[in-house]
Nucleic acid binder design. Structure first.
Length: 423
DNA sequence: TCACCAGTGGAGGGTTCG
DNA sequence: ATCACGAACCCTCCACTG
């Protein structure tokens, strides 16, 4: 038996309406209004909503079309992922003043293990407050912080710390909420079970069938019951969480296990030709990212979402790891051709998993036309002349003009160009 | 020759998260 | 009334190995 670990102090920092708040810094005239960042096209979704917009039932992942209906006066902004990334780095720079143990979960969220920082900077809650003050003073952004003996409770606590949009107004958050050691269960047990990390709609349904509504209900259920309903892994995990047990460490630099790209099209693709052209484009982008990260994949997965929303994947495992567009295409093209695309395709994706070191065997026979050599040359051209300087021939339109690579399409296809742009 | 077992890894699908 | 993208992890089934 491992020695029981000393009590830790974990922070979960969550920026408030992050993307919107960043936009408001350069659009101060929009403060106090309903503002939505996300996909603007008919197939887009909401990435972030101001609290004013949330009062109308707008929230992240909501289809933009529904959001427009619920909140017609909202101002929709397309989003600037690169900028949010930069700001996120600035936020992390502040975190690192207090501890090197920072685990980024998303651009707007991180865990900090400040156990070793307490002697220097004071109690967890004091550090949390200090971080909030730094972020406001230096970046003009607000965040909410949960403090607890483990990650999962810290995350729940940060939710409690957040502002809330209520029908009759916006209630400011407490900013910092701490769950002190010894008080875990009194905080945790009254919460609805769907708040547990890993309980989504499907698991919730299964638990409700067992009569579970609160975390306490789950904790009082025997492990065998939960395991038989949810499976070994998830069952054991959830029972532990329901008892406030979570030994997962704050992990600083986790290596990616897969790298992929997928895209939803403004209108469904119905012919194999366009699908193969798109496959080349997507594979090219994945290849570039693999090489930039110095990794290559052995298992290549093709993803197709049909017009009716049914999604299928086809994966192929190759003998030696690959990292170039043409190799990726070659791996999954047979699978694509074997699919019935009759229903029309709304999304196409490709990803590389089973990642490892690229297989660069420099044999005497290494030919100058090897895919990796050509890819290396392409990477160099892109580094010098920009990412649009060179691309697959199939991305060149009939006019000979290069079709712009649609970057930053994080939240769905763009809206068709309008004559009269929104205000 | 058959039945069974444990382990591994691939394929395909599904759930969850932000 | 409609549905993004990127990623992690899990389950089940199956083939193969010893």
């Amino acid at each position: 038996m491992p020695a029981s670990p000393a009590t830790r102090t974990i922070l979960h920092v969550d920026m408030d309406a992050f993307y919107v708040s960043v936009e408001l810094r350069r659009r101060p005239e929009l403060r106090g209004k309903a503002v939505v960042v996300g996909g603007t096209g008919p197939r887009g979704v909401v990435a972030a909503a101001s609290y004013e917009a949330r009062q109308f039932g707008v929230h992240s992942a909501l289809p933009s079309s529904v959001a427009r209906r619920r909140c017609p006066h909202a101002i929709f902004l397309p989003g600037d992922h690169a900028l949010y990334g930069q700001v996120s780095e600035q936020v992390h720079e502040i975190f690192h003043r207090y501890t090197p143990l920072v685990e980024g979960l998303a651009l707007d969220e991180a865990f900090l293990d400040v156990t070793g920082a307490v002697r220097l900077f004071g109690e967890g809650a004091a550090i949390a407050q200090q971080i909030r003050d730094d972020v406001v003073a230096e970046l003009d952004l607000t965040c909410s912080v949960g403090v607890a003996p483990n990650k999962f409770l810290a995350k729940l606590a940060s939710v409690e710390a957040k502002p809330r949009a209520l029908p009759d107004g916006i209630r400011p958050g407490r900013g910092v909420v701490e769950v002190r050691p010894g008080h875990e269960l009194e905080f945790l047990h009254p919460l609805p079970v769907k708040r547990l990390w890993g309980v989504g709609p499907v698991t919730l349904e299964r638990l409700e069938r067992l009569g579970v509504r609160t975390v306490r209900d789950l904790a009082q259920l025997g492990e065998p019951t939960v395991v038989s309903a949810l499976g070994r892994s998830q069952g054991v995990h959830l029972i532990a969480l329901a008892n406030a047990v979570d030994d997962r460490p704050v992990e600083v630099g986790r290596d990616a296990k897969s790298i992929g790209h997928e895209e939803t099209y403004p209108s469904d693709l119905v012919d194999l030709e366009s699908l193969e052209r798109e496959l080349v484009r997507l594979a090219d982008a994945v290849g570039a990212r693999l090489r930039r990260n110095g990794v290559a994949g052995r298992t290549i997965t093709l993803k197709v979402r049909y017009a009716g929303f049914r999604t299928v994947t086809r994966s192929v495992t190759v003998d030696s790891a690959i990292d170039t567009g043409p190799e990726l295409v070659a791996a999954v093209r047979p699978a694509l051709r074997a699919l019935d695309i009759g229903p029309g395709v709304r999304l196409l994706g490709i990803s590389a998993g089973n990642l490892g070191a690229p297989n660069r065997q420099l044999s005497l026979l290494d030919d100058v036309e090897s895919p990796s050599r050509a890819a290396g040359a392409i990477d160099e051209i892109r580094a010098r002349f920009g990412t649009t300087a060179i691309g697959p021939a199939s991305a060149v339109g009939p006019s000979g003009l290069r079709i712009a690579r649609k970057g930053g399409q994080q939240w769905g296809p763009d809206a068709p160009a309008e004559r009269d742009g929104p205000v």
